[in-house]
Structure formats: C-alpha cells, structure tokens
C-alpha cells in the first residue's frame, strides 16, 4: 500500500478537463472494522459544481471527503485535484490549496475575525496589504460589514455569524476547491436556511468546486448541483436532485429522500426544474406568476387557486422566464415517475 501511494507522485494527470476532483477506486479500511468505510468509490466532480455527499451516519461520506485533504489517508486508490494526484503534493501545500469548513466552525477563539481569515494567506506568505484587502473583500462577500466585524473575537459573534466567518476563512486564499463537513448542522433552522441561501448566492459569484457533506436531505436537495448518495461505503446514486427525487435508483434512495410522499417531493423541487418556454396563452396573459426559485408545492397551490392550468414563471427581477404547467406537475407526481420522465432529463 505504501509503495502504491508513493508511486502516485509520478502518475501523470489523466483526467477529463472539466473534472476538478476525481476519485478512482478509492478504498478506506479502518483497522478492526468489519467492512471498509469507503469501498471502491470512483466518481468525478465537475469544476464549479456543488456536489453533496449524502447518507446516513456511518455511510462513509465524511471519510470520503476527508481523504481529499488527507485528514484520513486512503488505503488504496487515487484522488486527483485539478488533475494532480494528491500524493504528489506536500501535505501542507495540498491542504492550503483546499478551503475547509467544519461543523463546529473551529474558529480560533484567541484570534480576531481578521486574523482567523488571514490564517492561510499568512501561511502562504502573502504581504499585509494584500491580506488586508482580501479580509475586507471576504467579509463583504459573506455579508458581515468589515468595519463592524473585523476586530471582533469569535465569542462576540452568533453561531450563524461564526460560520459565515468560517466560510470566509476557507475561501481566504481563493482555493478552487472547498470541502464542507456538515457546515450548517449545528445551526438553528431559520439561520440555516438563510446561510444556505447565502452559500448559493456566494457560489453563484465565485463558482468554486464544492464537496459538501450532510445527512440533511432537504439541505442536499436545496443546495446541490449533484448529489452522491452513499450507503455502507458505496455510492448508490450520483445524480441531480431532480433525478434523485423522480427516479431514485433503489428503495434505499427512495426512502432516504422521501420520494414517495408527493407533496414533500414537490416542496423540495423548484419551479426551474419544470420550466418550459412560454407557449400557453393562458400563461402568457394570466396575472398569476411564480418566482423561478419557488418550490413546486407552492406552484401547485397557485394553480389550484387560480383555476388556470399554467403559471407564468418570472425571475427575481420580475422578468418573464417561461411557464410551468399542471401537465408537467402531473408527470412529476405520478406513481411511476421512472417511466414518465423524458429521457433527456437524465444526467450522469
């Protein structure tokens, strides 16, 4: 095993151009464990995508993620970051180029917010003006006015604010990749929703490759570009939230995401998943419109109360973007979603 890993320092990059993180046949055995924590996992995360590792505790999702920054050492296999095998880099250098956010935030309580954010830039030897500018930029990005928050200690922040700083700190040296280990799990549900929205907003501007671990199905469906569902150390399904809800790979996935509950399924999907071009006159003229980010359960309610069978879909600015129809909703909620979804809706 040691020889195999040592040999990886010489392996030439051999992965697809748009793949930012690649796992190849990755295995992790913990001594004394009955089965491997991660069992021959191969998957590829596209650059700029937010991919969520989802599963019950003990499924191997955290272990899989922590092998990327080598907080766990893999037993065998290959992991590439931006085409480079992780063992080709010095341990500290590898970690400094990956942003890391953890559930317990882990802000350093003896350092002010600014110094917490400056940790990795300092390790990388940035000069002071550059670090200073970066701190302000990041605090603004995560919604904490620098003049008010720079000089605070972590204890002077709420849990939600602390995790905002945690995210700013992880992005300090502008890493292409972020690892997030249940970052919002310890935060109350109202703040959690707000932070999830913030993360989506931030991700919209920065387009990092994010590997995000959670056991919260709703969080996964809200945030993910793609979801990796794991069970007993293996990947059960790797797909978009829509496909996971509408065509779960097996009973386990179906139960995990609650796919059989129609209203629940609708509440977890967004109008954008059913967006089609404006064709129906009813939708074009009808006064009732719905936001593109609203959930389908809300859309169903609007359709029911409006008496029309289509809604106009508008974006945040109120500009029309298309329509959604009751027919599409029916297809989605039918008892046999697998047979009804158009084949072009499938992704890897």
């Amino acid at each position: 095993m040691a020889a195999q890993i040592a040999e990886q320092t010489k392996v030439e990059p051999k992965v697809a151009d748009d793949a930012a993180i690649v796992f190849e046949d990755v295995v992790k055995d913990f001594p004394g464990a009955a089965r491997p924590a991660v069992n021959h996992v191969s998957l590829s995360v596209k650059r700029g995508h937010l991919v969520i590792l989802l599963g019950p505790s003990g499924c191997g999702k955290t272990t899989l993620m922590k092998m990327v920054n080598r907080l766990h050492e893999m037993t065998s296999g290959y992991i590439y970051i931006e085409g480079t095998p992780i063992y080709a880099l010095k341990l500290e250098a590898l970690r400094r180029q990956i942003g890391y956010v953890i559930q317990d935030v882990g802000l350093f309580p003896h350092m002010r917010v600014e110094k917490n954010i400056a940790v990795v830039p300092n390790l990388l030897g940035w000069d002071k003006p550059r670090i200073d500018a970066r701190i302000d930029e990041l605090l603004k990005l995560v919604g904490l006015p620098p003049e008010e928050y720079r000089r605070r200690y972590p204890r002077q922040l709420s849990g939600g604010q602390q995790q905002r700083v945690g995210i700013a700190r992880a992005m300090a040296a502008d890493p292409a990749t972020l690892l997030m280990d249940e970052p919002f799990a310890a935060i109350d549900s109202i703040t959690r929703t707000r932070l999830q929205d913030e993360l989506l907003r931030i991700q919209h501007t920065v387009r990092k490759t994010i590997l995000f671990v959670t056991h919260d199905v709703e969080e996964a469906l809200r945030l993910a570009d793609e979801i990796v569902i794991m069970q007993n150390g293996e990947v059960v399904q790797y797909d978009t939230p829509l496909n996971i809800l509408t065509r779960p790979a097996n009973q386990f996935v179906s139960q995990l995401v609650g796919a059989e509950d129609v209203l629940r399924r609708l509440s977890l999907l967004a109008v954008k998943d059913l967006l089609e071009p404006l064709t129906s006159q009813a939708a074009a003229n009808h006064a009732l419109s719905i936001g593109i980010g609203d959930n389908l359960r809300h859309a169903l309610g609007l359709i029911m109360s409006s008496g029309s069978d289509a809604l106009r879909v508008v974006d945040e600015a109120g500009n029309p973007r298309g329509q959604m129809t009751l027919t599409a909703l029916r297809q989605l909620t039918s008892d046999h979603p697998n047979t009804l979804l158009p084949p072009d809706g499938a992704t890897t």
Binding site: N69, L71, L91, E92, A93, L94, R95, R96, Y100, I102, Q103, D104, V105, G106, L107, F108, P109, H110, V119, V120, L123, R169, A170, L179
Partner: peptide, 25 residues
C-alpha cells in the same frame, strides 16, 4: 478538537499548530 482539526485542515504544520493555536489556547 474542532480547533485542532481546523488548523490541520487549513495546512498548519504540527509546529505551527502548537505555537499558533494549541499553546495560546
């Protein structure tokens, strides 16, 4: 332990972790 994990995860060497985080705390 979260503070240690954060420090290691961010790429501090064991000595940096000791002098910048563990000892001060």
């Amino acid at each position: 332990p979260a503070v240690r994990e954060a420090g290691r995860g961010m790429g501090m060497s064991p000595t940096q972790l000791l002098t910048r985080v563990e000892l001060p705390l």
